[in-house]
Each structure stands twice: as C-alpha cells, then as structure tokens.
Amino acid sequence: MATSARVPPRLSSLPFRGSRAVAEGLLTWTKLRGPTWVRLLPDVYVHRGGHRADDHRMWCEAVALRLPPDAVLASRSAAYLFGADLLTRGDPVTVLLPTTARLRPHPRLSIVRSPAPARDRTRFAGLPVTTALRTAFDLGRLGPRVEALVAVDALLRRRVVELTALRAYAADRPGWPGSSLLREVLTLAEPLSESPMETRLRLLLLDAGLGPLTAQHEVRHGGRFVARVDLAWPTLRIAVEYDGDHHRERAQFRRDVARLNALRSAGWIVLRFTADDVLRRPEATVALVHQALAERRTTMPAR
C-alpha cells in the first residue's frame, strides 16, 4: 500500500504538533523521522505533499502552533493574511511578542517585542494576528518611506482598514517609534492606488514636485466613458500609467491599443511606464512627465 494511503486525513496538508499527533496515536516518533514528514520547527511537522518551502501561509500556520499566549502574527505576515502581499521570497514570519514571553529563535521567524493589548489582537483566516488597524499602524512606521507608503496603500486598497480610522488611531499614539514617518505617510496615502508599483510611481512624481495628481481618474468624452487611468492631471488631459507584466499578454496588448487610441481621440496624452522606468530610470521618467506637463500648460487655453 502507498505511504500516502496511511496518512491520517487531518495531517495530510496542514502543519501540526508532532507531540500531539503521537499522544493521540496518529503517528509514532519513528514515523515522524521518516521521509513522509518534513520538520518545520521544533515539534512542528507537515506532510511532504503539503510542504512548499516558500509558502508563507504554511509558515504562518507552523509558527502559530508555537506561539505563547497573547503573541500574534504581525507586520507583513499579518498584511499577507489580510490579502496585501508585501513579501519577498523567503521572508520570515513576523511575530509580535509580549515583553515577558519567550519564543525560540529560528531563521524563518522575525520577533518584534511591543505592547499588544487585546484590542490590537484578533483572529483572521483561522490564525492569531494583529488587527488590520494595528497592522497598518506598524507598517506605516517602518521605513524606508516608500515601503511604508506602499504597505499602507495596499491595506487601504484591500478595504480592511479606513484612512480616517488609521489617522485617528495614530493620533492617539503620538510617541511611538516611527510616528513622524507615519504622519507623513498618512498625508500621502491613497486608497485608490491599485498596486505597489503604482504607489511608487505616484510618490516619485509627487517628490519631483509634479503634484497634485488624481488617482484612478475616469475619462469621459462627449458624455461617454472612455477609460479609467492610473494617475492624471484632468485639466491638462495628461495621464500616467504603470504597465505590469500582464500588459505583455497578446489579448491585453490588443485591449491596451484600443484603449490608448480612444484616449488619444479624446485629446489625452498618455505616458506609460514599467518597473524599470520607476526603479532604475526615475530621473528620465520624471523628465518625460515634466516635459508633457510643460507643453500642455503652454498650449492649452487658461480656464
């Protein structure tokens, strides 16, 4: 009989405590040391079929089994569970740990010691996490500045937290580390921003003095909807868009061409940028936008 047929159903996919499985007669320590099971943390195992080395959710499940009372998953790990993926490959699971609690260090674990009262803790997706409000508060205080804004925008976009509530929450905690950064981030936050790279592009333009600009602006011409653009100067009819990898797909490319032609027919200039433009050629990107704005200001009649 195949080994998989002997796997207890409740242990077939999710991490579990080895000692509990042995105590309940589901496995033996000898079997746990065999090739069917992968040891993730001390006394935490997963079936080899459910093991994905870079699956952050799996690691969150594993770490949650080892958490002492009142400890919770936090920061980017909590944001990931809320649907805002801010992780890079191999990022450790972040845990908010009470000052008196103990947790054995591990390479896949990042421990932050900070007060976490009951009102800042909840359960989401079956796991103990900081509330969305506390998660946004923590990430907005964590530099660098652009990453703090990306994180706050992402959580606002998921609608798990509201900007007014976050501002009020921050105002009640003025002395916390990173509060000055958070205050700046909250003046720049945009709930309509649709992706981390769109946030980075918007901040690049704002820092270059090219604001104010409107996010997710609906373009209408002759009373009819034409398109919704990422960033815009509506009175100048200039749009700036971030093009991710999905724009390279053939069907998406055809839609993009038709959409761009419709915007041009409506009198709009559309500048499109990629990740390389934002991250590796920021000066050239700013220069192109600045040139388009200057040309339009000199050719369009004053209103």
Score class of each variant (00 low, 15 high):
179 S>L: 11
119 R>N: 10
265 S>V: 07
219 V>M: 06
46 V>G: 05
240 V>S: 15
49 G>W: 00
70 D>P: 07
173 R>M: 02
4 S>Q: 13
121 R>H: 06
21 A>M: 06
267 G>P: 00
84 A>K: 05
73 L>A: 14
287 A>H: 15
20 R>D: 10
117 P>D: 03
105 P>M: 11
289 V>Y: 02
107 P>L: 12
286 V>T: 07
17 R>E: 01
229 V>P: 09
217 H>C: 02
251 A>M: 15
279 L>P: 15
140 G>W: 04
268 W>T: 00
58 M>Q: 13
208 A>L: 02
98 P>C: 05
299 T>G: 11
92 P>D: 09
246 H>L: 06
141 R>E: 06
190 E>R: 15
130 T>D: 02
84 A>Q: 06
259 R>Q: 05
187 T>I: 11
49 G>F: 00
190 E>P: 01
8 P>A: 07
262 A>E: 13
107 P>Q: 11
201 L>P: 03
110 S>A: 12
146 V>M: 08
52 R>T: 09
207 D>M: 07
193 S>E: 04
209 G>C: 08
280 R>E: 09
215 A>F: 04
231 L>V: 12
267 G>Y: 07
137 F>M: 02
233 W>D: 00
89 R>S: 11
66 R>P: 12
96 L>F: 13
128 P>L: 03
72 V>Q: 09
112 V>Y: 14
292 A>W: 00
160 V>Q: 01
199 T>A: 05
210 L>Y: 00
183 R>H: 13
16 F>L: 03
105 P>L: 12
128 P>G: 08
102 R>C: 10
111 I>K: 14
281 R>H: 11
